[in-house]
Amino acid sequence: MKEATLLVFRGDSNGGQTIAYRVPVAPGMVVLDALHHIQGHLAPDLAVRWNCKAGKCGSCSAEVNGRPRLTCKTRMDDLPQDQPITVLPMKSFPRIKDLVTDVSWNYRVNRKIPPFEPRKGVEWKISQLDVDRVQEFRKCIECFLCQDVCHVLREHDKQEQFAGPRFFVRIAGLEMHPLDGRHRAALLKDQLGLGLCNITKCCTEVCPEEIRITDNAIIPLKERVVDEFYDPLTMLFRKVRGQ
């Protein structure tokens, strides 16, 4: 049987190193299968998160050969066969152990977002054409790969000022909800740091759900912030209409 070498990070918040493991390769195998093989036969204490093994839960995020990926959707045969495969934990989050990182920051950010609140007196009739646009954002499986790759967090550590692409996606889903009555533009500008995003699109590149994060969520939100705060004409227009 063919074999592959994996260089897997072993260590915790105090540091660590990558360790080489030889793993037999079966047809159609994904990196998570290889990690499970290591767990089951070579290193039972290897810490890995996973649940669905089908790209639905967003638990198994890591960096494979330098790229943020879901390990359950990364096929071994898509990676160069002749070199070892490096598997590291997500870089933007504090390490706990091996491939497991502390993603609790994300849950704290989520709490800052005002929930859905229906406009007064809505009838619960919604047209599919309104649903289509928003459903894209609701596909998010919270793998946090976009958070991991975003340089504002990864390189500039702006966790305090910046919510990150995942939560811009979530807010886009709320703001464009056909029945939602709240406005979150001020929050986006002042507290969630939408302006720190320089639309360099790495989040879009890594999203396993193929959500077009930058084009469909972030830029439209930036335009909404412009409406509210930077466009004198719209601001005037709104004043006149008394909105």
């Binding site: 943020p68 990864r154 302006g195």
Partner: peptide
């Protein structure tokens, strides 16, 4: 800023983005 995805940037400076 960044050079490419998951590629390091130069030494930390005060990044302000588009704010």
């Amino acid at each position: 800023d960044p050079p490419a995805c998951a590629v390091g940037e130069s030494a930390r400076r005060n990044y302000r983005g588009e704010t």
